[in-house]
Nucleic acid binder design. Sequence first.
DNA 1: TATTGTTATACTCTATAACTATA
DNA 2: TATAGTTATAGAGTATAACAATA
Lengths: 176, 176
Amino acid sequence: MTSAAPRKSAKPKAIETPEAGRKGVVLAKSSAAKIDQVDTTYLQTLMGYNARRAALSIIELFLERLAPYGLKPVDFSVMSTIQHNPGVTSRQLCATLNLLPPNLVGLIQSLESRGLIERKPHPHDGRAVGLHATSKGQALMVQAEQAATELETEKTAKLTPGQRKTLLELLQKIYL
Amino acid sequence: MTSAAPRKSAKPKAIETPEAGRKGVVLAKSSAAKIDQVDTTYLQTLMGYNARRAALSIIELFLERLAPYGLKPVDFSVMSTIQHNPGVTSRQLCATLNLLPPNLVGLIQSLESRGLIERKPHPHDGRAVGLHATSKGQALMVQAEQAATELETEKTAKLTPGQRKTLLELLQKIYL
DNA sequence: TATTGTTATACTCTATAACTATA
DNA sequence: TATAGTTATAGAGTATAACAATA
């Protein structure tokens, strides 16, 4: 998780204060006076800010729901990629998921010691090691992926299926 | 920065291998054989994965471009919020930006010691402290916000203005 | 010489508990 | 009693440098 500031139950909704509401826009007060509502209209124009806030919001729930499976976001991404790409190497995982090799070592060892993956010699390259999900790992991921899909549905409940698809496509245009 | 895996210059583009291309879909190979292209189609259906990847991609460039101003993403968000909300308190910053109070203390002290913000007694609450950007801080933020806007324009170059607006709105539907 | 995987390690970020001063 | 701000500290995440084994 990232930060667990006091939960806001109320939604911003551009509340208009008596002082600032005349033009229908919430304006920052010019002097040193007390602030009731905090204006974040500028930050909300930044894609980085919005993408980060949205990601952290989803990850917060992800950590709760996937904790029973002992999987954090990166663990989940690695396991899922191994499951769908039997024989994938650490180097390929790093390139695909934008991870650094030293940080993957402990993660792989942990998954192996839990009996979720196996390491087999690479058929063509003696340096590399092919990673494979065990039947235990595969069974776990079926459950974990279902939990992930459910939590995502909840977090994107305000979006129509079309909007959800659009959002995925537009995000991929940024990082791919 | 988050991770600096070997830069991928090529783009995925759903390359079809001879073995997997028959149905126009890239499939994971079923056996323990070598993997050429890594299939991430499942992860790409997850909003959390895509939002995080997009955010980190933008933040990576943000760190480079804003380093001359001595501002990291959170510093920038805090300074920007103070600038647009003179007299805002630490408590309000935490609630608005989803930060934890202990983590804000050192950040505020750093900004104050750099002469970018001032702390003034709160008019109505003796416990609270109002935060204000100094003229030096305001001048810095004018430059910093311009740099941020430029970098964002580059990172979202594949999007039309309409798509960019749509993306911002849809992301806010997730975390607000 | 270049690459895969690894070790060691440093640095940053985030989280929790507990304290003070004021309301 | 509750809240704003603070301190200390633990834990997780991310980073760089350097090495052995293989290509």
